[in-house]
């Protein structure tokens, strides 16, 4: 055996090279250190960019941070102009987006993960869904203009915008649903089947329940993206000046719910911001900066909520 023959000299060489080995470990540790430093630096750079952008917007726009900015309609006088129709429009569009994307996205994700047979067809669907997530938003806008506005004749309405953005974030919801479903151990399903649960009972009582946090995260991140989308909304013909609110969704008389608002014209925050930014008058640029800061704050809040909920829900799950 060669080891018997070489054991002694090897041991000796190890002892002899102990310093060399220590130096090597030290070198590797140093490399590790360099990598983590680079990683931290990159992270800081990203955060710093966001911070600079945000503080720049706040510094430009802080003088408009007051309640009247949120309760006034757009106006030709920059100091009187407000965001009322824009933020209400954004909120209503987001509501429709949510109602469209969540049931469809979760159902599609659940089907693909739990029900669909694994064959070339479901592979094809999978590739398409992933691909859809990367399609530029303007393409969705053009699709919506042709389909919703002209063929289905829904007009340039809140409903059209909500459906468009719903389609836009659908792939995000599907992918995040699938990922969080996949994270559930197979043993959970098998245990449920073992006590005689049907497929639907397994899905509804276990799979959906345990993947709730992940799905919610995906939904909120998708909604945060939809909030800042401008291109598809401009394509379907959102307005710029609108100094009245859509009819209220809730009424005082029966049946208490009113759907007229869905067919109303609208504008959204990023469009209002874009319009102010292209004005010659510098006072409007201040309004635009304030709007930008507001959009970033809302997006941060939404993403923060997503992280918090995911953390909280994960903590409650005990397998």
């Amino acid at each position: 055996m060669t080891s018997d023959v070489t054991q002694k000299p090897a041991q000796a060489s190890v002892l002899k090279n102990l310093d060399a080995v220590r130096a090597m470990i030290k070198r590797h540790k140093f490399n590790d250190y360099i990598f983590s430093a680079i990683g931290l630096l990159t992270l800081m750079l990203v955060l710093l960019t966001l911070l600079i952008l945000f503080s720049d917007l706040v510094m430009d726009g802080y003088e408009r941070f007051n309640l009247s900015f949120l309760s006034e309609y757009p106006s030709r006088r920059a100091a009187n102009a407000g965001l009322l129709s824009a933020w209400v429009g954004s909120a209503l569009v987001m509501l429709v987006t949510f109602l469209v994307a969540v049931p469809m996205g979760v159902a599609a994700g659940l089907y693909l993960e739990e029900y669909a047979p694994k064959n070339w067809f479901s592979d094809l669907i999978e590739i398409n869904v992933t691909n859809l997530a990367g399609v530029p938003s303007i393409v969705y806008g053009l699709l919506a203009l042709g389909l919703f506005v002209y063929i289905l004749d829904l007009g340039q309405s809140i409903l059209t915008a909500g459906l468009t953005l719903g389609l836009l974030i659908l792939p995000i919801v599907i992918v995040s649903t699938r990922e969080s479903i996949r994270a559930i151990p197979i043993a959970i399903r098998e245990a449920a089947y073992a006590v005689g649960a049907t497929k639907w009972q397994v899905c509804y009582d276990h799979v959906i329940k345990y993947s709730y946090g992940g799905i919610l995260t995906g939904v909120i991140i998708g909604m945060a993206r939809a909030l800042g989308e401008t291109a598809p909304i401009i394509t379907i013909g959102a307005l710029t000046f609108i100094a009245f609110l859509p009819p209220s969704p809730v009424t005082e008389v029966a049946p208490f719910i009113n759907f007229e608002w869905l067919s109303s014209g609208f504008t959204v925050l990023p469009i209002q911001m874009f319009n102010w930014l292209s004005r010659p008058d510098h006072a409007f640029h201040i309004n635009a900066a304030a709007t930008g800061a507001l959009i970033i704050i809302v997006t941060l809040l939404m993403n923060g909520t997503a992280i918090y909920l995911r953390y909280k829900i994960r903590k409650n799950i005990k397998w």
Partner: peptide
Amino acid sequence: IAALIATAFTSG
């Protein structure tokens, strides 16, 4: 969803 469908028909 029911609401969406209903409005789709009445919006005009």
